[in-house]
Write a protein that binds this DNA or RNA. Sequence first.
DNA 1: ATGAAAGCGCTAACAT
DNA 2: ATGTTAGCGCTTTCAT
Lengths: 327, 327
Amino acid sequence: MATIRDVAKLAGVSVATVSRVLNQNGYVNEETEKRVRQAMKELNYKPSEVARALFKKTSKTIGLIVPDITNPFFPELVRAVEDVMNIYDYTVILCNSDEKTDKEKEYIEVLKQKYVDGIILTTNQLQLDEVSEWDIPVVVLDRPLSRSYPSVIADNYGGARLATKHLYDTGCRKIAHIQGPPHVVNAIERFRGYRDEMMERGLWDERLIISGNYQLKQAKEAVIEALNKYDIDGIFAGNDAMAVGALKAVQQLGLRVPDDIAIIGYDGIPLTEMTTPELSTISQPIYEMGAIAARILIKKIEGKPLEKLHYVLPVELVVRQSTRKGE
Amino acid sequence: MATIRDVAKLAGVSVATVSRVLNQNGYVNEETEKRVRQAMKELNYKPSEVARALFKKTSKTIGLIVPDITNPFFPELVRAVEDVMNIYDYTVILCNSDEKTDKEKEYIEVLKQKYVDGIILTTNQLQLDEVSEWDIPVVVLDRPLSRSYPSVIADNYGGARLATKHLYDTGCRKIAHIQGPPHVVNAIERFRGYRDEMMERGLWDERLIISGNYQLKQAKEAVIEALNKYDIDGIFAGNDAMAVGALKAVQQLGLRVPDDIAIIGYDGIPLTEMTTPELSTISQPIYEMGAIAARILIKKIEGKPLEKLHYVLPVELVVRQSTRKGE
DNA sequence: ATGAAAGCGCTAACAT
DNA sequence: ATGTTAGCGCTTTCAT
């Protein structure tokens, strides 16, 4: 790899001059500039981002911490972040935290050591005070962390009400809800939406709550158990994977979807179009969430003011076969 | 952030000594070491990886270039790479190339500027001569690039024969194949396996070949068209997404899977367990592929000899409802 | 066993 | 308009 000295020597100028044309600051003669550019091309010179980072304390790199890229909700989110960051010449270090506080903290340390310019964080675990020590721009994505950091989330409460109401509108009255893990804020919000909607309609019944952990298998078993005990004609699953679990449970018991039991999921991942019947769901603007978070982070990095600190994006009801009775 | 000078000052020693305890090289008095460690702790000192990288020309970072993390085949691969790299204290920069040569080249330039220690590459596009210029360790993953780079792939040819034979064994005789994109080496290998198996059994018929591009929708339409024209009793899809497309096509035409038409996919992604009926597939050891590629890369980076240059991992037939007739 | 000094490749005053 | 110099935070000779 050629260095700036090589270029300077070949062009017969000082290193400073090369730096000037490189960064387009300061004055440099047109003639000289040409020679320098020529030399750079000849040597195929690319400045060392590392040396730059050392001097400027900025690396054109950000960290993106997600629980698990293997969870089908995250690939699109990650892709969005990468796409936007790419436009602004940033590079993305991907970190899987498995929702473990320790791993998150370790990653954050490492990221800081590498002079990343900012971090996008998808987490529930970290406490406010732990976060506030970081002297580095942070944006919180998908799950609200605290009031003090910019955040991008979707309207979980509203989406849950929408889902519940939709089941009601299709004629369901005994609507069960498969909850997500109790420590995940999103899951709690969705539960609240379900509860309020049910209460307002006088349909609330604690026995209709099924405990889930966002996983297909566990949800399937829990639903089988619930269906054997209680009378249920609709299921609102806390995410799409659990909706598939519910679907499999219902089918295994020889019941029909949607005619005996209607099912709606949450998230709107591609998977929902691949089942038979296809699943109704509350679709989150996943790509947009990632893209907005990335844009906000860049603004913070560049020290520009944010129009808004907290973004709550609208969700959308997607009606498919699993809630379309009698078709 | 505290620097090494701060630590040295606080401990009352020279910078060199701090560096020595940091890297555990050279001799340092036990007493002194204690004082230094104490000072490091007090200041919560973490060495700057950037300064280190500048000196050592190594950054404890690798680049991972995949076509599109949104394609459900890749999250697990990425996760595996990250997991292994994490053990060895490497960090992973994720790059989505969309299979575009330009994007790949740009990323490689950027990665080199950042002094990444190595690159794991999933691609078909780059030519041998373009690659060979890179003065940096490279491992090729999932798709063979050239003989000169270490590679980790699965046995696509053998898997395709296995899939075809399985359909034959379940009684299918008019077995169609949905091909993947013609420029993807994997897809070609799978096609070859299918062709050879069909020929050996005297079942070969060019009209049974359906063109696909690894996408669900396109495959679905192509299958509908094919089913309307020809008599088909089994479908071997070049990947799982297209198998879902085939499933939907068959169901839409009012035919039964597997009794009228048996279907088998390829890859073994989780999705195959979520459809109804669940899909038979050729399962690739995705996680293992990623993990091995990561281990190889580390060996290359550390200058250790490789036991093997090219890894071809075995695949496995997974039989599910979509090929289990009469149950 | 420890310190002093040079240098990794770049940028930004300051000088000319 | 260009060159000289110091320094980002670290590691590694070379002295002592």
